[in-house]
Design a protein around this nucleic acid. Structure first.
Lengths: 343, 343
DNA sequence: TTGTATGCGTTATCAC
DNA sequence: GTGATAACGCATACAA
């Protein structure tokens, strides 16, 4: 029962005393075919419960109408939203998605990418893992003639299509907002600096300080504080400094910001009066903490849609002008209670 | 550049003056092949940057080592966690995942399933959409000889592998807990009753009331309150009844429970003193609301792993005993502040 | 140990 | 309009 032979176009052909070619034409309505026979084919195909073998079809046609997506974690809000956005568009166009997660491991990412190449996907969409070192596997994708689109976390040196957030600007705005609220000693929780996005966020932070002539305090910059736990740990450290910060910008994630908030609250420090807190990503929970957390919305679903649209655009105007395009989405600062000191 | 011909086993064969079969054998180390030639093949394959065409291979082999997953929403915590769990196991076994989302629409679900059948996936994993009416498309999967595994939301009448939560028991425990905390007038927010999971949760609720000889109040049971907004709306309705409930069990989701909490708080009603609130799913935010929300953990990642393991088990002992197996996972009640009135 | 021949299911290019 | 035939790239039974 398990190894049951499936119905093929030959089975239909035999039944109708025509050849497989006729059946094929009828089913894919390509080429000439008598209206009557066509209807007959369609009818018996339905009767026999025929399902086209996409494998064979793809092999013959040389394209799979499939897009491979590689993300660090599927079950992370930002990424699952981007995927949902991609899916929304690709589904309408009749394309399929193969999803892989790299688990933030470079090695697994390489394996995923290779699998996708083997699968002959038409396009690979990727946001690179945190510990990525080399980008040979991505160069490989390009070499195989497969469209490559990077989003969010990108290898800047590779000339590919990119969809990114203007991290620096968003970060700059956030810190400016803090300063305008009267915070003067602003700490930064930063992420792995091998990822462009975290470097950019740091740059935005520094630019804002510079604009307002606020000196940089090295002790206020904490590396790799990008989980809730690490955020909490960093906070304990920061709040035991001789010279305390009066605001913490968790540029890595809202989870980190949550760690800050919980720790500060536990220590009896009043937010936002004594400590301002700003996160990144606009996770759902930031709205419902008390106080609610100021954060930055990345428009993740929209980002996914943009990625997908970019692919189809690029495919349609297939001129050889391989001009690498980069789309930057402007994130939005969402001001909430955790940083609101002035009316 | 885009339509660049990829390297095939023939290219390697030509280069080494052997035949494609030898190359094939060497690459898939099947059958006899001279150690020296094998090494040579492997070396030049690497040199030429050969990538196996999985399409052709799969067509030949009659299996794709691919599993299709259909969920209502990719970017919903529960589902993205299940997917992550599935991926974790299947990745280790060298299997791929094709993910589709039905958007809670039966019609889209049917299309997804058909696409997966066409793709000749080895297995289809599905959690049915909320508005599903017929299950013909799933019967179809079985008829095509494809392994079908349902999880969470299942069509009970279909004899397939199933991985479910013991919803009734969890719901029963939750309501018993409420009663033991002194709540006497417990309202129920219920989900679409065409989905088994919501029927079961309702049954658990009724069973608990019965056990404690608490009469059923029809006005306390609100249909289709399974989003935050609908939960809020239901709460306003419930809290304007002449005879108020003193607890609300949002059996549909934590989002619904959040709507309850926010509405109650806005109305100046004290939680848990005047109103007990219990949700479902253990979303991350339930821990950080104030008060934190009592809820039920479904072990979603574990559920995904269970699904994947079930597939591999079933594949390995391929005896024809098509005994439909069903695995039930016992969810866990997480008691938090929103229902804690007694020490 | 290697080569030859064939087929997986489909589509495209020819003839007829 | 329809049929015969080849090809997509790989894997295997069989022959050598």
């Amino acid at each position: 029962m398990n190894a049951k032979k499936r119905i093929t176009i030959y089975d239909i052909a035999e039944r109708l005393n025509v050849t497989a070619s006729t059946v094929s034409r009828a089913l894919s309505n390509a080429g000439y075919v008598n209206a009557a026979t066509k209807e007959l084919v369609l009818k018996t195909a339905a009767e026999l419960n025929y399902k086209r073998n996409t494998l064979a079809s793809n092999l013959r046609m040389g394209q799979t109408k499939t897009i491979g997506v590689v993300v660090p974690r599927i079950n992370q809000n930002f990424f699952s939203n981007v995927i949902a956005g991609i899916e929304d568009i690709t589904y309408q166009k009749g394309y399929n998605l193969i999803i892989c997660q790299s688990d933030e491991q470079h090695q697994k990412e390489v394996k995923c990418v290779n699998t996708l190449i083997n699968q002959h996907v038409d396009c690979i969409v990727i946001s690179v893992s945190a510990d990525s070192v080399s980008y040979q596997h991505l160069q490989n994708v390009i070499d195989q003639g497969i469209q490559l689109i990077q989003f969010d976390r990108v290898a800047e040196e590779l000339e590919t299509l990119k969809v990114i957030n203007d991290n620096e600007q968003a970060s700059y705005q956030a810190v400016c907002h803090l300063i305008e609220q009267g915070y003067k000693k602003i700490a930064l929780l930063e992420g792995p600096q091998n990822l462009n996005i975290f470097r950019q966020r740091k740059t935005g932070y520094l630019r804002a300080l510079e604009k307002y002539n606020i000196p940089i305090t090295d002790a206020f910059i904490v590396e790799n504080a990008w989980t809730k736990e690490l955020g909490a740990e960093a906070t304990r450290k920061l709040l035991s400094l001789p010279d305390l910060p009066d605001a913490i910008f968790a540029s890595t994630s809202d989870f980190s910001a949550l760690g800050v908030l919980e720790t500060a609250t536990a220590m009896g420090i009043k937010v936002p009066a004594e400590l301002g807190i700003c996160g990144y990503s606009n996770e759902a929970f930031t709205e419902i903490t008390s106080p609610s957390i100021t954060t930055i919305d990345q428009f993740s679903v929209f980002m996914g849609k943009t990625v997908a649209n970019l692919f189809f655009q690029e495919m349609e105007n297939n001129d050889t002008s391989v001009t690498p395009k980069s789309i930057s989405i402007q994130p939005e600062l969402i001001v909430r209670s955790s940083t609101r000191r002035k009316s």
